[in-house]
């Protein structure tokens, strides 16, 4: 077996804390996807089941004052940052109690109190916006970081190159986190990037520090993020972290591909990735290291499940925005 010296450096408590956060993201996401089937959440939702370790690993490496931006598949980053399950569910149900008061829906989330500034729906937008927040920090001499989460398809947009070029010129404290889940909607990498493409090489050619990790390995994502964040805080300029991962459900909506008659990925391929489930891997690691036993993890999971159930019930029962407020907050 390959030696994994860095692993033992993560304290047990932190490991457990990250696992709890991972479980919260997973359990909430899974429950929301189930409820989504009832057709009561009228907002196109891109579920991130299978990709949770990327969000949790990166966010755990941040400090208060750092800011996070996300994209259309935003639930994981919002929840990992500590965004409220109740407000997320209420947003999906179109309630006034939603994090964006029912105006933004699944792709336009915010939870500024926990540093999750915003997600937007169009590919690559928040890559530039995060860069701008880092510019503000840099101009004011603040030691804060901006994190931008995006999928590998955003690396096919011009704004990605405009932004990383700018961040490199000005040595801005931005961590660009690419969640490479191999598909853009239903388009495979083969029609989008030349064979042999290494996104890290592209980032390095723009003078960014770049690392690629197994995005389903929570500890590996955390360690790489912490390492890159340290460099960012030392003023070493922007960094790129590519996390290899996989989305379990269809691009938008609550179904597995096979349930919806989608054929762009084989069932075998999906199932092989589900075997590499980030939650199961994290749990196995915790048990192997003796940080907690199976019963303790089950109790943790049950507690979160109860909290999530309570949150989604309350969200569903919450009031919709009053119709008289249609024009509020345009300016």
């Amino acid at each position: 077996m390959k030696a994994e010296p860095a692993r033992t450096e993560i304290p047990g408590e932190l490991r457990l804390e990250m696992h709890a956060r991972l479980l919260r993201v997973r359990i909430a996401s899974r429950r929301l996807a189930e409820l989504y089937r009832e057709q009561e959440m009228r907002t196109p939702a891109h579920f991130g089941l299978g990709q949770e370790a990327v969000a949790v690993g990166v966010v755990t490496a941040l400090r208060p004052g750092d800011v996070v931006y996300s994209h259309h598949r935003a639930h994981n980053h919002y929840l990992a940052s500590g965004g409220s399950v109740y407000e997320l569910a209420a947003e999906l149900y179109g309630r006034e109690a939603g994090c964006s008061r029912g105006r933004g829906g699944s792709a336009h989330l915010t939870a500024q109190a926990v540093g999750f500034i915003a997600s937007t729906a169009i590919l690559g937008e928040t890559i530039a916006i995060a860069t701008g927040s880092a510019l503000a920090f840099s101009m004011r001499g603040e030691r804060r970081l901006a994190v931008s989460f995006f999928g590998e398809a955003a690396c096919e947009e011009g704004i990605f190159y405009e932004s990383i070029n700018y961040a490199a010129i000005r040595r801005l404290p931005v961590l660009y986190v690419c969640e490479n889940n191999l598909y853009s909607t239903e388009s495979p990498l083969s029609v989008r990037q030349p064979a042999g493409t290494e996104l890290c090489e592209r980032a390095r050619s723009f003078k960014l520090k770049a690392e690629r990790v197994d995005g389903n390995d929570l500890a590996a994502v955390y360690e790489a993020s912490a390492r890159l964040a340290d460099g960012l805080r030392r003023g070493e300029g922007p960094a790129f972290l590519e996390c290899m991962t996989y989305r379990w459900l269809e691009h938008v909506g609550p179904h597995f591909d096979h349930e919806a008659g989608r054929t762009y990925r084989s069932r075998e391929e999906v199932e092989s990735w589900m075997q590499r489930c980030p939650v199961k891997r994290s749990a196995a690691e915790i048990i192997r290291l003796g940080v907690a036993d199976e019963a303790a993890l089950a109790a943790l999971s049950n507690g979160i499940t109860r909290d999530v159930e309570d949150a989604v019930k309350r969200a569903r029962a919450a009031d919709p925005p009053p119709q008289g407020d249609l024009y509020a907050d345009v300016w």
Binding site: A128, I129, T131, L135, A136, E162
Partner: peptide, 20 residues
């Protein structure tokens, strides 16, 4: 700034959200 009209606008937005 470089010729990067779209990203530069996004950068302005991100800076404005942080109080600039």
């Amino acid at each position: 700034a470089p010729a990067m009209e779209n990203a530069l606008t996004g950068i302005a937005i991100g800076a404005a959200v942080m109080g600039m």
